[in-house]
């Protein structure tokens, strides 16, 4: 509780770090902030060419099917793999100044989250052009899904960043793990394609309900199942709690280990 109150008191630091990160990211490039939009757009072009022209999947509007799941996944993946080195990247701050250490991974995840929000502008344009009819209540559920994913990403980023301080290999291990994780999440294929005996593995994967919920809203134009939402919410809260606990334990010796 104490920690949460303290993090709240440092909310402006989170805001500043996110702003600095977003503004600093494209500062020196010619197209600048436009890259935030160009990036997902080019990805979409590549996937469309590959999966609609070369590797035909047989799924209707496969580019949209993939895109609405891929953008949230990229946010999640970046939060974990990039978040794992976030404390080390800010070691000058950690070694010299007191502030609740949680602020650093939270800021990192938040800046990835804001990037995802910008990508969603592209998603909405693509959805509108594709002719999918969105369900109004479904769209209202979207912010909830996003917040649940955000909470979950923070939980995982907290664990990854804290453990990486003591065990630097984790950063590289996570590169492989997140890749495997992506294929174990129904991003490139629908969940129904998963064989019955593998379903158990998917049941414990916290990203499955999240991705399914996004797809329900943006691809199928439905209201996501309450079960899916609840499932994602519970898993999100659990990962956040575990993250806060692990981080709280490990953060005391950050300054000495860095």
């Amino acid at each position: 509780m104490e920690t949460i109150k303290e993090i709240y008191n440092y909310r402006h630091m989170i805001y500043s770090l996110v702003r600095r990160d977003l503004r600093g990211r494209y500062k020196a490039s010619v197209l600048g902030f436009l890259w935030t939009f160009i990036n997902p757009l080019l990805q979409l072009v590549v996937y469309t060419i590959v999966f609609s022209v070369i590797l035909k999947s047989g799924i209707d509007k496969y580019y949209l099917f993939l895109f609405v799941a891929l953008v949230p996944w990229i946010f999640f993946q970046a939060s974990i793999s990039g978040g794992s080195s976030s404390i080390i990247a800010q070691q000058d701050l950690v070694k010299k100044i007191y502030f609740p250490r949680e602020v650093i991974p939270i800021s990192y995840v938040t800046s990835c989250f804001v990037n995802m929000l910008f990508s969603f502008i592209i998603i909405f344009i693509v959805v509108a052009l594709s002719g999918v009819k969105l369900n109004f209540i479904g769209v209202l559920c979207l912010p909830i899904i996003m917040i649940v994913e955000y909470i979950m990403a923070i939980g995982f980023a907290l664990i990854a960043s804290a453990v990486t301080v003591y065990f630097r290999d984790l950063e590289h291990i996570l590169g492989i793990v997140t890749m495997a994780w992506m294929y174990l999440t129904p991003i490139m294929y629908p969940i129904d394609m998963v064989p019955e005996n593998l379903r158990k593995v998917f049941a414990i994967n916290p990203m499955v309900p999240i991705i399914n919920a996004y797809r329900d809203v943006l691809y199928y134009g439905q209201i996501p199942h309450l079960n899916t939402l609840l499932n994602g919410f519970v898993l999100g809260i659990i990962s956040l709690l575990v993250g806060v606990l692990v981080f709280g334990k490990l953060k005391r010796h950050f300054a000495e280990e860095l």
Partner: peptide
């Protein structure tokens, strides 16, 4: 100034 002060825990 805003960034630096926020690290010291100051609000906007």
């Amino acid at each position: 100034i805003y960034t630096n002060a926020s690290i010291f825990g100051l609000t906007k």
